[in-house]
């Protein structure tokens, strides 16, 4: 494995019942790169991200994060150590924003170090005004910022994001993009599943499309022409 490649995926397959979601996944993830996964709903983007995060076990194939061919149990441990998966709707633990940030810190830190790191993360993500707010009561954009601040605190080598800007307003999308850019600048590799990557274009280095269970290289941000069947039918108004 080359030095700058963090993760190699070969012939990964995943099936749910009779449905083969991932057929032959081949992927190399470089350090500090951002990779966008495209594809329609149900194409397997989330499943692939979850496999790469160690949250889902593939049926077959090789995932190598630098240790070569080892048992899944050890691969999963390595993936859990090295990656962080962000759900489409980030989960907030029952507690304040501060509590949620503190969770991402290792236990070995002293109380002062913890407070310092939390303060830095709050400043980084603009969370200080909602420091003591219950995280369950946050808006979608605020939740996204808390989850990215947790990533900033944890500093994984790879960040897997499932539709990070879905259901966000323009301002929240802009802030999310800024935070993701900042994370990428720290050397973190990003893999993001997104239907609409245009507003993340400055971030993305490579676009892949999940098509029939395989990853296909695509031109970045190519806008597919719509066939007449994709257009909405004209509405009829009656008096």
């Amino acid at each position: 494995m080359k030095d700058d490649i963090l993760l190699t995926v070969r012939s990964v397959k995943k099936r749910f019942g009779r449905r083969e979601v991932l057929r032959e996944i081949e992927l190399d993830l470089k350090s500090g790169h951002c990779l966008q996964l495209g594809g329609p709903n149900g194409a397997g983007k989330t499943t692939l991200l979850r496999i790469l995060s160690g949250l889902e076990r593939p049926d077959q194939g090789l995932i190598d994060c630098g240790d070569g061919r080892i048992a899944w149990k050890r691969i999963r441990r390595r993936l859990l150590e090295q990656t962080l998966y962000l759900h489409q709707q980030p989960y907030m633990f029952d507690g304040t924003v501060r509590y949620n940030l503190a969770y991402a810190l290792p236990n070995r830190l002293s109380a002062n170090e913890r407070e310092e790191r939390i303060k830095q993360a709050m400043d980084w993500a603009g969370l200080e005004p909602i420091r003591n707010t219950s995280a369950k009561e946050l808006s979608g954009g605020e939740r996204q910022r808390v989850s990215l601040a947790r990533a900033w605190l944890r500093q994984p080598r790879m960040l897997m994001l499932d539709e990070p800007t879905a259901n966000l307003d323009r301002e929240s999308r802009r802030r999310t993009l800024n935070l993701l850019t900042s994370l990428k600048e720290t050397g973190m590799s990003l893999v993001l599943a997104s239907h609409d990557p245009l507003h993340l274009s400055t971030l993305i280095d490579r676009c892949l499309l999940l098509h029939e269970g395989r990853l296909v290289e695509t031109e970045p941000f190519k806008i597919m022409p719509l066939s007449p069947s994709h257009l909405p039918s004209p509405m009829r108004f009656t008096a």
């Binding site: 990656t83 962080l84 759900h87 989960y91």
Partner: peptide
Amino acid sequence: VDRRAWETARTLGA
């Protein structure tokens, strides 16, 4: 409890 609680904990290094 939402299943994401377990997954979020694990992915945050727990």
